[in-house]
Design a binder for these strands. Structure first.
Lengths: 221, 221
DNA sequence: CTCTTGACACCTAGGTGCGAACTT
DNA sequence: AAGTTCGCACCTAGGTGTCAAGAG
């Protein structure tokens, strides 16, 4: 759909050299070596093959699977901010005008922290919530239902130098895992997605019926 | 027991000018104006009148009431670290030698943060846990059972200046609320303490029997 | 004897999809 | 007809004191 991508260990950086239109795109050493690996890759891929759907509610709903990454290559002593946003993918022509949802950034709550902190264990965005409420005041990510999105992950080096804003475009790096794309919905459209959610999300255990679903859950830990 | 203290709005700073033995004890402007007010003061006092007891377990147990404060007078833009420790009070002569528990500091998990952040809402140490396990690896506060302690609260200004360690004794301020003192126990000694815990801690609602206990809980919110 | 430990029932707090009711 | 909302039963995760059993 949008060209070949590395998936498991994704060094692809969508907006690198693309944002801001700068021609010279040398990154600072603090971000140039950063590598990001998606956790729960097999589960994400299983969902993606069916066409992942994520529930959005007025109050805000977690993502499942959760967006989690393992990071390497940071400067252990340098300070970084980690954040996520969501890029609209195909625009579904429904005949009515699309409301342009305000584009928000979700800062990882541990931001800012030094590289050693971020690298020593999996970084999880489990507090991130999706909403379809355009007037949301809770800081959740606002998405349009029945639209598709590509989650994007940003690593921003906190440059202590004066006039660091002049280097703003050199101080960050972005990562995008195609298998994490999804459609925002208020109710599941694909029954196979529902079944896979029930089978793999511990909080939906109450809806499991078959042994198969229990067995699948066990294998994901 | 240890002299007159202000209690509700406690500007008392136990170690100010006492720690380090420095004679000139001028504090930096970033901490000199800091004021701290204990939350749930009435409840703390009610417990203190009975002789507060806090359960310690191997796995770690929360304090109840929780140590919560409202802070004012910080420099909104300056960065601070907030932490707590526990000072042993009277030494109960039990005939056996006292094990000297390693004295730990508990950093508030939001540390470091700027003054504006700390002042805009109540600062709660609800993640702090007490343990009697001398070999604890979970970062809990290690206390000796059947011993009494005085919780102490520290505000530390993170000085960005080079050689800031030379001003270390000027960059912090400490606060101590006498009504938060308690005895660490593995099982409650005073039945009236047990009853007050059951009446006031939402997690102990399962043990309430009388209407009175329900009514008291309601009044504390 | 005094003090500590650990399994337990009972809560709080909040994350699931379901299905009926509602909106457009 | 298609999409959204909301109360609900059912879970996970973890904070309570109790009580019987254990340790010294």
């Amino acid at each position: 759909m949008d060209g070949p991508h590395l998936s498991r260990s994704c060094e692809l950086s969508l907006p690198c050299c693309a944002d801001g239109g700068s021609l010279s795109c040398t990154k600072t050493p603090q971000v140039s070596g950063v590598r990001v690996q998606l956790e729960m890759h097999a589960l994400w891929q299983q969902f993606d093959q069916l066409g992942t759907e994520m529930i959005v509610t007025k109050a805000g709903r977690r993502m499942f699977p959760t967006f989690q990454v393992q990071i390497s290559g940071m400067d252990p002593t340098a300070e970084y901010v980690l954040l996520m946003d969501f890029i609209p993918l195909t625009i579904k022509d429904t005949g009515r005008a699309d409301v342009i949802a305000p584009s928000r950034m979700h800062f990882h709550p541990d931001s800012p922290a030094c590289g050693a902190q971020w690298m020593k264990q999996t970084v999880s965005f489990d507090t991130l919530k999706l909403t379809n409420n355009l007037l949301d005041y809770n800081g959740h990510m606002i998405l349009n239902s029945m639209h598709r999105y590509q989650p994007r992950f940003h690593v921003v080096y906190v440059d202590p130098a004066p006039n660091s804003h002049l280097n703003a475009n050199r101080n960050f790096c972005s990562f995008s895992f195609p298998e994490t794309r999804f459609m925002a919905v208020t109710a599941y459209q694909n029954h196979r997605i529902t079944q896979l959610k029930i089978a793999s999300n511990p909080f939906a255990k109450g809806f499991r019926t078959t042994d198969l679903q229990d067995r699948e859950q066990r294998s994901w830990g």
